[in-house]
Design a protein around this nucleic acid. Structure first.
Length: 674
DNA sequence: CTACCTCGAGCTCA
DNA sequence: CTCGAGGTAG
């Protein structure tokens, strides 16, 4: 064992803490205390010592920010507390409505004050620190499950690897935004272009792209920043009682807090803040897409609670979307799986709101007539609600003479069948059904998709090609595809063809639920397919089901029942199903036992309170035996809560999230029935 | 809807 | 090198 001189250890520690301090001054506080040259000198010293005595290297050493070995993939992580999104306010009125709801809900004549902060346009991440050390960083994902991006996050210099506190909380989750300043973004693009690579289109995408690198050494070279905006869970800490206090606390732990955050005594003050920020948004060093307004009092936040998607105590005041002029080049009429005909505007490409827009949905015939579109019209486009491009209006002054009015077709552009307008529906539908190649293509794409038969390698382009080439005309034909037919397709070699055939073969083994979903019955999504598969043991039963039987299933209403019956009443349906089965598509026949076993599969149950008849552990075992996952905390992903006597906060939360709850009696009845 | 990353495979040219 | 597919993000 090599002993290291105490002096060396001491000087190493000194180096680490000095570098950490200067790092903090520079990246978090924007207040450097030494020159870059001096900093580099210290860093070189550190690396020298660490090279000589690798056993000294501390986990939070600044040298650890250069990135490690590339990952094979990102791991999935469950969020302990779901990462919700925010409700949006696109107008002053919507903001005032929010304020009104807050007051009503609190039933409180007392004034509510808010905290206003610029809404950074970046990527939301959650950071978990245990005993002061950063142990996990995850993206938002679907709110319940995200991706583990710890290795990449560690390379960001404006966040601490180790919290700046002598007595750090045992556990704390910090949430914030990973973003790039405009300066950082421009610098990166200069560098990228020098290397002959494609520049990023906007800072947000550059930040998101950097975070998705499997090789964290690449991420380390990207000018990423992190700005903290909330704390979700912590222990061992006397808690602040306001959002502002919380942020101050987070700042003391070593995080960058947005300097433009401001306190607002009431909603009027919020409004002026929004106005002022909007006028000086171009002066900011970073991109924003609005202002986040939060009830400052944490106690009140708690009282207000959360909805399934967003908290009631916060709102995002979105700035009016940027608008731009473009020309209407054409209107395409797309035919969907159910025959729905959707007009799509093809526009001359225009850069608006950070991306290049070249097409936008026009939704339906009403929208076309509302706009009064003529081909070649100059139109105003914007990105509404963040993402979806929208044609706002026509600039009539710029309309060319003799330009032709855009008319909704009477016949399907693909199969020429009449387009029908059902009086109760807004959408018009092609009546060609499966004689329409567009509908066939969509049906096949849906059939092959992940939640359905999951045929890997059968993407949109290939389906189009195969149908156009006449190789397949229905989902049934997929199972007759052969190697020679496939390899004669362009850019589809022997290997790809074999892989695809294997995937098709593999798809034959499926489940009733997936098969039902794959059939593409109108309005029957994953959820409804599950209900059907659970209620009936065989497809024959479903085909024979009477209206009342369908209606008796919770979650299936008259519309759904009608669609299901119409679908199965079609002799074509019967033909297709028997053909598929004849070609080998099969699923485990649900014996009574199997129905029991899988009936709660995919569900997440939570137990709370005390029950008379069984212990928590027994209940857990029962539920797990039925295929459910039993979790400790209520989130938006929770399927059902079982509340015994003395249930408290979990019950409250379940109610707030609109999650179904069983009491003990109902629970016992349920397990007896299942 | 657009942009980005990653992968496997095919094409092209040396 | 380019393409298509499959995944992510907002």
């Amino acid at each position: 064992m090599v002993t290291i001189d105490d002096g060396i250890i001491a000087s190493y520690r000194r180096l680490v803490s000095d570098l950490q301090a200067h790092n903090h001054y520079y990246h978090v506080l924007d207040d450097p205390r030494i020159s870059d040259v001096e900093y580099d000198g210290l860093m070189r010293q550190l690396l020298l010592v660490e090279k000589q005595y690798p056993q000294l290297i501390k986990k939070d050493s600044p040298s650890q920010r250069i990135g490690g070995a590339p990952l094979p993939e990102f791991n999935q992580v469950q969020h302990t507390v779901p990462m919700l999104s925010l409700d949006n306010a696109f107008s002053v009125e919507a903001l005032r409505d929010f304020d009104r709801r807050v007051h009503e809900r609190l039933q409180d004549s007392v004034k509510v004050s808010y905290l206003c902060e610029p809404k950074l346009d970046g990527v939301a991440v959650s950071l978990i620190y245990k005993e002061g050390m950063l142990v996990q960083a995850a993206t938002r994902g679907d709110g319940a499950t995200g991706e583990d991006v710890t290795a990449n996050i560690k390379t960001i210099k404006s966040l601490p690897l180790k919290l700046m506190s002598d007595l750090p909380p045992r556990l704390i989750e910090i949430r914030g935004e990973v973003y790039m300043t405009r300066q950082g973004f421009n610098g990166l693009n200069v560098f990228v272009k020098e290397r002959g690579e494609k520049p990023f289109v906007n800072p947000r995408n550059a930040a998101a792209g950097s975070l998705r690198q499997l090789d964290s050494k690449v991420t380390a070279r990207r000018p990423l920043n992190f700005c903290a905006y909330s704390v979700e869970q912590y222990s061992d800490y006397g808690s602040p009682d306001t959002q502002w206090g919380m942020l101050e606390y987070v700042g003391r732990l070593g995080f960058r807090i947005n300097p433009d955050i401001s306190f607002a005594v009431d909603i009027d003050a919020c409004e002026s803040y929004c106005n002022s920020l909007f006028t000086r948004r171009t002066l900011l060093s970073y991109d924003i897409d609005g202002v986040v307004i939060k009830v400052n009092d944490l106690q009140k936040q708690k009282l207000l609670g959360v909805l399934s998607r967003s908290p009631r105590w916060a709102i995002a005041r979105k700035f009016p979307a940027e608008e731009a002029f473009s020309q209407l080049v054409a209107v395409d009429f797309q035919v969907g799986r159910t025959g729905a005909v959707t007009p799509v505007a093809r526009l001359s490409p225009v850069f608006v709101g950070g991306v290049t827009i070249s097409s936008a949905t026009l939704h339906n015939a009403d929208e076309i007539s509302r706009l009064g579109l003529h081909l070649g019209d100059t139109v105003v486009v914007r990105r509404a609600g963040d993402v979806i491009p929208q044609v706002v209006r026509v600039v009539y002054e710029r309309r060319q003479k003799n330009s032709s009015l855009v008319l909704f077709p009477k016949f399907c552009p693909v199969c020429s069948a009449p387009i029908l307008n059902h009086p109760s529906e807004v959408v018009a539908r092609c009546s060609g059904s499966l004689r329409c190649s567009a509908q066939v293509k969509q049906a096949i794409k849906h059939f092959a998709s992940r939640g359905a038969m999951n045929i890997n390698g059968l993407g949109d382009r290939l389906v189009d090609k195969l149908v156009d080439a006449g190789c397949i005309a229905s989902i049934v034909d997929l199972y007759d595809l052969t190697l020679p037919t496939l390899t004669q397709q362009e850019r589809l070699g022997d290997k790809s063809a074999r892989n695809l055939l294997n995937a098709i073969e593999k798809s034959k083994r499926t489940t009733l639920q997936k098969f039902l979903y794959a059939l593409g019955i109108r309005e029957v999504g994953v959820n409804c397919a599950r209900l059907l598969a659970k209620q009936f043991t065989s497809i024959e039963e479903i085909m024979a089901a009477r209206r009342n039987e369908l209606l008796s299933i919770e979650g299936i209403g008259p519309v759904l029942a009608e669609h299901i019956q119409v679908f199965f009443a079609d002799p074509k349906t019967y033909e297709i199903i028997t053909e598929l089965q004849r070609k080998g598509v099969h699923w485990p026949l649900a014996s009574v036992d199997e129905v029991r076993d899988i009936s709660l599969h995919g569900q997440v149950w939570v137990l709370t309170g005390r029950m008379e008849s069984m212990s928590r552990g027994e209940a857990r075992n029962v539920l797990q035996a039925l295929g459910a996952r039993v979790s400790d905390s209520v989130s938006s992903k929770t399927s059902r809560l079982v509340a015994g006597s003395g249930a408290g906060s979990k019950l409250k939360k379940a109610n707030a999230l609109d999650i179904p709850v069983f009491d003990e009696k109902q629970f016992l009845q349920f397990i007896a029935d299942t």
